[in-house]
């Protein structure tokens, strides 16, 4: 409970401090709009040449773009800025301050920074999903909504775990500022359904860089393409990734403190 409050404090302070820079709002809005526009234009170019892509119709892929924005916004809202700070802290040695706090270090490191402007992307993601559903003319029953919610959470957990594992490498390699830029370029792989890739690459994008998978599944749930095995598999994968990244993090901390040496 008090951990939830801690998250609240970070969020509140993030909002309060950003509101001082109101000019920033416009820059951020433009960024979000450009991002969305290029994503939709990419979709448009593909469907100017074809009517379906690996069995996905245009409006179904629109839902995928929506999920892509939603999960991306969630990650960018807290996790990415926090990991960026974490990597800087390792390099500067100020991580020591985090590790001497009586709170779970992984939690602290994951939620310390908030980029509230990403709420614009959250809104856009929901907007795009709404449009996609309306154009598909299908209504979201409670079962499908639940499946969507569940897989969205699982997808978010998968992406978070992947990001944490990437950032944790800072304990060994110190200078990994660029790894977050890399994450962003990897995240782009989620813009298309994972099914279009050849098997070897699909495996990579499911288990090694599981971003495409994490985004395809909730989108499938939203448009009603999801089957039970995939749903269960996704939840299991999310749990496994969370456990793995937590373990890897603790190995990193132990390495940092020289316990493994």
């Amino acid at each position: 409970m008090s951990r939830l409050r801690l998250v609240g404090v970070f969020l509140r302070l993030g909002v309060l401090n950003e509101l001082q820079y109101r000019a920033n709002f416009w820059i951020q809005l433009i960024r979000s709009l450009v991002n969305l526009a290029t994503a939709l234009a990419g979709l448009g170019v593909v469907f100017s040449q074809a009517t379906t892509l690996d069995g996905w119709r245009q409006d179904e892929l629109l839902a995928l773009v929506g999920v892509y924005f939603l999960v991306g916004a969630g990650v960018n809202l807290v996790f990415l800025p926090s990991m960026s700070q974490f990597i800087g802290d390792v390099r500067k040695g100020t991580l020591d301050y985090v590790l001497t706090k009586p709170e779970d270090a992984q939690l602290l490191v994951s939620i310390r920074r908030v980029d509230i402007w990403r709420l614009i992307d959250v809104a856009m993601g929901f907007g795009v999903n709404g449009v996609a559903l309306a154009r598909l003319g299908s209504d979201l029953g409670p079962g499908r909504a639940a499946a969507f919610g569940l897989t969205l959470l699982a997808g978010g957990a998968i992406v978070y775990s992947f990001l944490l594992a990437l950032a944790t490498t800072a304990f060994w390699f110190v200078r990994v500022e660029n790894i977050l830029v890399v994450f962003q370029s990897m995240y782009v792989a989620g813009r298309w359904p994972v099914g279009i890739y050849p098997p070897w690459l699909r495996g990579t994008l499911t288990f090694v860089v599981p971003i495409a998978f994490a985004i395809t599944v909730p989108a499938s749930a939203l448009v009603g393409r999801l089957d039970w095995p995939t749903l269960v598999g996704t939840v299991v994968l999310a749990a496994a990734m969370l456990a793995f990244s937590r373990w890897f993090w603790s190995v990193g901390v132990r390495h940092y403190s020289g316990a493994s040496a």
Binding site: V46, L53, N178, V182, A189, W192, I196, P198, L201, V209
Partner: peptide, 25 residues
């Protein structure tokens, strides 16, 4: 070098993705 390798994944992944998309189309 590990950093470089990870960085390469990013550089390779994006063109690869669009290669697949367009080849599929």
């Amino acid at each position: 070098r590990v950093m470089l390798a990870i960085w390469l994944i990013g550089l390779v992944l994006q063109p690869l993705m669009y290669l697949v998309v367009w080849a599929t189309v």
